[in-house]
Design a protein around this nucleic acid. Structure first.
Lengths: 117, 117
DNA sequence: TTAATATGCAACCATAGGGTTGCATATTAA
DNA sequence: TTAATATGCAACCCTATGGTTGCATATTAA
């Protein structure tokens, strides 16, 4: 740490690892997108969009729920999944922060960046 | 697809899966944060911050590079890694998009959201 | 009551992911 | 030329992850 820049954007980002990991799967992103429209859906219904088994979808939904991206509610024999409000806010904020640091850092290193090879 | 809402925010997000996956690891987030300060660093230097072996760090750096988050340049016997400008922009944009959809969707379902359990 | 539907649970499988160590090779410093 | 430094490559290991199938159980519809 001998830089002139103080260590902003510290451990913050690190805490988002599991959230990013949850987003790091195409099937789960598909599920999220389907949920981005209309009312909460049952597991069976969400499974219809996919070629995967219901169990596979169930597991993915659990990952999303653990990551706090999704919330579930049991209604009768079915379990409805919907989006968790504000779940992405924190992550977006973290990304904005690091992105800002990024730009500042790069501005200082313009010369190297422009002649990388 | 019998909803009244058209399927916006389509495959876009899906394409970011590998990028999110790359961000979904604490070690890699640490590396990124270290790179967010100062000039490009060699593998050995980046390894010093961690308890992991140089090889482990090398692998992580490769993942970051494949995801387009980082760029490397060989200088003499060492390989320097630095941030890839604008790498996060696309992702941030995708997140903003889905987040917007999210909010709209949730607004429509306020009743359910307010009484989840 | 009976049949159909929606899940949950558990056992299993194969592969990808994260780490390590040892050895070879290219640069740079003495 | 020799020694030290920075990487690359490859073989292994163990565990997590993503999927499957079969069976049990709770609800709802006939």
């Amino acid at each position: 740490m001998s830089e002139k820049t103080p260590d902003v954007a510290p451990a913050v980002l690190r805490n988002n690892a599991s959230l990013f990991a949850a987003l790091g799967d195409a099937t789960r992103l598909d599920l999220l997108m389907h949920m981005t429209t209309g009312e909460p859906r049952s597991i069976t219904r969400l499974s219809r969009h996919s070629a995967l088994s219901r169990q596979a979808i169930t597991k993915h939904l659990r990952v999303l729920e653990d990551a706090g991206l999704v919330r579930s509610k049991s209604r009768g024999r079915e379990k409805l999944f919907g989006l968790e409000p504000g779940a992405l806010d924190e992550t977006r904020h973290a990304l904005d922060m690091i992105s800002k640091q990024w730009d500042e850092s790069l501005a200082r290193l313009k010369a190297w960046v422009e002649d990388p090879g």
